[in-house]
Every structure is written in structure tokens, then in C-alpha cells.
């Protein structure tokens, strides 16, 4: 589904990604872990099409298409979803409106008719219930005045409504208490399906107790240093990152 080859990228004149290789197949859940500043978030932003991240080398294909050639909005419509680490607040733009506009943009691109207003509201209420979100969400601005946890729930809610083929969740677990973590994980798990894939960018192994990954990768210094199954995450939790990096040097 997603094939990243030798991806190199720079931000503000600084090289961050220095040759990332990664293949994600449909039905798989991958976890990308790594110390602070290793390039995890940069990778997520580059895949989503952020303009101020300059790709200097490599290629990315998504379902056979050249992902890097597409602007951000077309990537989204093609089924790529980024759950932001720090979702921006957009006061004055209603949550529901944004979600509806996003869903309709996707449907239009797929040649489907716009969603019926009533059906949409029913759908969103159902998903909100699943995510244990309060009704007030319907009337508020996008992420406006949300707590950190609420913002993350909102990201997952958007994902559930948009039903992407590939979801990249950037530290969606950070700042969540245990109950919220369970809700968010349940949301992600509900989307697991042989036709979809999920990439979890995370700091902690904790999330992986709830969303069990097929593969775990360690990203450091802009490269993937080690890959393995979920036991790698447990080992990282126990031993930290240093041993991976040292093993590389040796």
C-alpha cells in the first residue's frame, strides 16, 4: 500500500530524514518509535504533504501512485489521513462543518454524491458516542478550547468518519489518561481491516498494549535503525534506545 524508498527531507535548511525505507501492506499496523528529534513527526508531515518540508531525495508510492507529486488535499482524498501531534485550533470554523466538507471532498473525488445532512448528523453522533465525546463538540470551533485529550479524540473521530485507507497517527497517545487511551485505541482498532493500514508514531510502548502492531521500527537520526515484531517495543521499553544505536555503530 505504502512504499517509502530512501526518503530524505529537510526543514529550514536542516536535513532531518536521511534515507528512510519502509513498506506498509494493507491490513498491517506499523509502529514507529524513536527518541526525541529522531524525525518521526517529520516523516508524518512529509507523507501528509506539508509544503515547508523539502523532499531532497527518494520516493514514496501510495497504492502505486507517486504520493510526493500530489498536493496535501489530494493525498487526503486518496485515503491518507494524518492524526496530528498538535492539532491546530481554528476558531470560527465549526467542527461539524469541517468534517462534512472533508467527507464531501472525498466523496466528490470518488465520484459519489454529497452526504445527506441528516444522515451525516446521525453518523457523526454515532461516532461521537463511540468516542465518548460530549454534544457540545457539535457547536464548537475546530479544536477550539479543547484539552489535549479532547483534541486527540477529535482526531480519531475525524478518522472514523473519513475512513482512510492509511492512517498515520502522530503521537496520538501523548497526553492521554488511561481511560482516554482505551477509547482512542478502541477507535483505531475499530478501523482495522484487511484493506486498511495504520502507522502509529509513538514514544511509548503503552499504546501498543492496546493497538498491537505487526511491525515495530526504530527511527533515529533520520533513518530506520531496527525493525522487528511487537517484542521489540517491549525490549525498547526495558532497555531504552541506546542499545539499538550502539548496536548500529558496532
Amino acid at each position: 500500500m505504502l512504499k517509502i524508498s530512501n526518503l530524505c527531507a529537510r526543514v529550514a535548511g536542516k536535513d532531518i530524514l536521511k534515507g528512510v525505507n519502509l513498506t506498509v501492506n494493507a491490513g498491517e499496523v506499523h509502529a514507529i518509535m524513536g527518541p526525541n528529534g529522531s524525525g518521526k513527526s517529520t516523516l508524518a508531515q512529509v507523507l501528509a504533504g506539508r509544503e515547508d518540508y523539502e523532499v531532497t531525495d527518494g520516493s514514496v508510492t501510495f497504492e502505486g501512485r507517486d504520493l510526493l507529486a500530489l498536493p496535501a488535499e489530494e493525498r487526503a482524498r486518496a485515503g491518507l489521513f494524518l492524526g496530528f501531534q498538535y492539532p491546530v485550533e481554528i476558531p470560527g470554523v465549526n467542527n461539524v462543518y469541517l468534517l462534512k466538507a472533508a467527507l464531501n471532498a472525498k466523496r466528490k473525488a470518488a465520484g459519489e454524491p454529497e452526504v445527506d445532512a441528516y444522515d451525516f448528523l446521525t453518523l457523526i453522533r454515532q461516532k461521537m458516542k463511540f468516542m465518548q465525546m460530549s454534544e457540545s463538540f457539535l457547536t464548537r470551533g475546530v479544536n477550539e478550547g479543547f484539552s489535549g485529550g479532547e483534541k486527540k479524540r477529535n482526531e480519531v473521530l475525524q478518522m472514523l468518519v473519513l475512513e482512510p485507507k492509511l492512517a498515520i497517527l502522530d503521537e496520538t497517545d501523548s497526553g492521554l489518561d488511561i481511560d482516554a487511551l482505551k477509547v482512542v485505541s478502541a477507535g483505531v482498532n475499530s478501523l482495522r481491516d484487511p484493506k486498511r493500514a495504520v502507522v502509529l508514531v509513538t514514544h511509548y510502548q503503552r499504546l501498543l498494549d492496546y493497538i498491537v502492531p505487526d511491525q515495530v521500527h526504530v527511527l533515529s537520526g533520520g533513518r530506520i535503525r531496527k525493525s522487528g515484531d511487537k517484542s521489540l517495543a517491549q525490549e525498547l521499553e526495558r532497555r531504552g534506545y541506546d542499545w539499538v544505536l550502539e548496536a548500529q555503530v558496532a
Partner: peptide, 29 residues
């Protein structure tokens, strides 16, 4: 705000819509 714009684009909205929406939101207060 470029962050707001990117957020909307990443949700699939086209650029004109996203921009107009932000202009309108700007006046909302």
C-alpha cells in the same frame, strides 16, 4: 495561518474553500 490551512488541506478540503473558510472564521469573533 499556514498551520490552519494545512490542517484543512490534510482533511481533503480544496485550497479555495479552505482559504475562504479561514477568512470567514477570521471575522467570526
Amino acid at each position: 495561518d499556514p498551520d490552519m490551512l494545512f490542517y484543512m488541506l490534510s482533511r481533503g478540503l480544496d485550497r479555495d474553500t479552505a482559504q475562504s473558510l479561514l477568512v470567514y472564521a477570521f471575522l467570526a469573533d
